[in-house]
């Protein structure tokens, strides 16, 4: 059996598969259920400082080609986060917890980071790239290098003042002209790692009988297997520009081969989200089995040796 464990920002994961933010991510019980099914770690759904209502239904639609979602980042606020994260940590699953945070202003990103860091998640992931709340908040911070850097600096300096050493990673948007430039800006601003990538678009689907956009928000983030080549290229480009920066690669991963491909491009961890739709919650176990089979056939003893091996 190959060693599937990886070290990400000093945090050890028994395998590189993490539940991506936004899916099955609302409660401690749900996170534990995902870990029971083989995830190496989990990411919470985006956490707000105060309650934030999501969009009305339909919020997620899917077919064999893609999923389109505009859930609208609903959350009950930091008190709920405290209860659920505390409960998950008490379950002692051994799987690290990545707390994903979101806010409307640079200042509030700092406030939210400070409040969530007190609950002691293993890693803080900063969501500056959600494509389905643009009506409410305008273009995501991840779309302008200077804005992305300001959020990063604010979060890092707030945590430093409180003497928290929690790794901070920034979740990037694929919907930009030059993702490497944004990546460089947030790393220069102190980011410890990057998540590449958030959903694509936004896109739209119309019901032609009723002549109405299906999603209540009209537009939503696009995910699914066809997006993998985009993720691979972004991860590859960023890894080559910033070889020391660890990456959580996300985008269209359904199989062990997909996960290995993202790792070869430069990802240390691999996020699983929409894949759960295509292969069920058993996808984590299926992918780790497939990676083991591949490692055996290719005489790979340590999966982490594959990270960034494609030149």
């Amino acid at each position: 059996m190959a060693d599937l464990s990886v070290n990400f920002c000093g945090v050890k994961f028994k395998n590189p598969l993490v539940l991506a933010s936004g899916i099955l991510g609302i409660t401690a019980s749900s996170w534990r259920n995902v870990v029971r099914h083989g995830a190496g770690g989990i990411t919470t759904k985006s956490l707000w400082l105060h309650e934030h209502k999501g969009h009305r239904n339909p919020v997620i639609i899917a077919n064999e080609h893609y999923m389109l979602n505009a859930v609208g980042v609903p959350d009950a606020g930091v008190n709920k986060a405290r209860e659920e994260i505390g409960k998950f940590l008490a379950f002692r699953t051994g799987a690290p917890l990545i707390a994903n945070i979101i806010a409307d202003t640079v200042h509030n990103f700092g406030e939210t980071a400070a409040e969530i860091a007190k609950i002691k998640p293993d890693i803080l992931e900063v969501n500056i790239s959600c494509p389905n709340v643009e009506d409410e908040f305008g273009k995501p911070f991840a779309c302008v290098a200077a804005d992305a850097a300001r959020v990063t600096k604010e979060v890092k300096s707030r945590l430093k003042k409180m003497r928290f050493k929690i790794p901070v990673i920034i979740k990037l948007s694929p919907n930009v002209e030059n993702i490497v430039e944004i990546a460089r800006a947030v790393v220069n601003a102190g980011a410890d790692g990057l998540t590449v990538m958030n959903s694509v678009g936004p896109g739209m689907a119309i019901n032609i009988e009723t002549r109405t956009p299906i999603l209540k928000n009209k537009v939503g983030g696009l995910t699914g297997p066809a997006l993998k080549p985009l993720a691979v290229k972004f991860i590859y480009d960023i890894h080559h520009a910033l070889p020391k920066t660890p990456i959580i690669g996300i985008g269209g991963v359904l199989t062990g081969a997909d996960a290995i491909e993202l790792m070869m491009a430069g990802a240390t961890l691999v996020g699983i989200g929409t894949g759960i739709y295509y292969r069920g919650i058993g996808i984590f176990k299926k992918i780790t089995d497939e990676m083991q089979t591949w490692c055996k056939a290719n005489h790979v003893k340590r999966l982490s040796d594959l990270i960034g091996t494609v030149s």
Binding site: G25, I26, T27, S30, I60, A62, Y277, G280
Partner: peptide, 10 residues
Amino acid sequence: FGICGNCCVD
């Protein structure tokens, strides 16, 4: 269809 997680039970 088992994705959003809103109906998960404790």
